[in-house]
Design a binder for these strands. Structure first.
Lengths: 206, 206
DNA sequence: GTCTATAGACTGATAGAC
DNA sequence: GTCTATCAGTCTATAGAC
């Protein structure tokens, strides 16, 4: 196919796909080698072991999932209103292309919490210290809302956006009849509705 | 410990624990045998194979996760307002006791969608045909809300309730400092807030 | 029913030829 | 760098004693 891509890159792309689909435990190094179109021995030649290859993929996946929002969340020149639209749509855009990413990250963190926590070290207190958090707090103060915190709203935003992607198979099984087109329509509707509901919680535009 | 419990029951309980923690792929039959305090051979004596044991645990887990809401959702004598409170609190109660249950179900469904879809056969169109759905639709009609459907609201309710449990490790890593007590406080706050937000979307009490 | 011992298959990793 | 062949370890499952 792409004969210009280096072998190392081919292996990494194959590993990403297989790990994201099956998780560390169920992924086989032979699967990755086959997917990359190379031999098993070559995988160990480039990356010393399955675990070292996994660590690389996991670190890149964590960066991937945070980088979707980290820039916009800390942008001081974007209004709260627009920021909500951008964060929701950023996640939907990204996760419809990589639907396995969030469940992969959540599963592997649970499988190995202490190890993977360290890698999250950089964006520690990423939520609490973000400009987004401050903007939400200002809005809550403005509307004299004292019962809940910006953390609840942030979790609501991520939950309502990411959960329908993680739970897609269950959703499609439970809500019959639902096909791929209907699911896509459903997710595209949420690009409008989730920001609307979040803004409602914050009493924006009232 | 509990010497009255039959060996079969002990193995099933151990299997449930190990499968929920590690998933099918990473769970070892020896882990289950050790957890049950019996020998590995005995596991295969009672259940023919790891996979057959897993199938039993998986089916019970699916029933478990649906039975939390299936009765209340179809109860025609409970008002929409109260029903929302009960569904949210039912999930929080149940999942704080079994925090691994939802991620286990979501992961294994993704790992083997076609196989597990069949087991969801019973509650097919469980959402669409529920009395809960009808009550939400009536409320949307009453308030002349035409842009979104009850399905969106139902997904919002489940998302905002279940996602913070599935994402607990990530939440605790990102929102520093957060300890167990703070997490429990956070989840208990959501017993009040999630119903409040859902009712806001449906314009109940306005 | 419950155990020990082991077979048999799979998997990650390496040796060695090219 | 890339391959084939194979080793060593792990895991599920079973045979057979009690």
């Amino acid at each position: 196919m792409e004969k210009d891509i280096s072998t190392e890159k081919k292996i990494k792309e194959a590993a990403r796909k297989v790990f994201h689909e099956k998780g560390y435990g169920q992924a086989r190094t032979r699967d990755i080698a086959d997917e990359a179109g190379i031999n098993l021995a070559l995988l160990n030649y480039y990356f010393r072991s399955k675990e070292k290859l996994f660590d690389i993929i996991m670190e890149e996946s964590l960066i991937e999932i945070f980088s979707i929002i980290i820039d916009i969340v800390n942008d001081e020149s974007t209004s709260l209103d627009r920021k909500i639209d951008i964060v929701v749509n950023g996640y939907i855009d990204s996760l419809l292309v990589n639907p396995n990413l969030p469940l992969f990250v959540l599963s592997e963190i649970q499988a190995n919490p202490e190890k993977l926590m360290k890698k999250v070290g950089v964006p520690k207190s990423m939520i609490l210290n973000s400009y987004f958090y401050k903007q939400m707090q200002d809005q809550l103060d403005l509307k004299d809302i004292k019962d809940f915190t910006p953390l609840h709203i942030f979790i609501n935003l991520v939950s309502m956006t990411v959960f329908p992607i993680v739970g897609k198979p269950l959703l499609m099984a439970l809500h019959h009849p639902m096909n791929e087109d209907m699911y896509m329509t459903f997710m595209n509707e949420r690009r409008i509705f989730v920001p609307m509901w979040i803004k409602g919680m914050l009493k924006i535009d009232e």
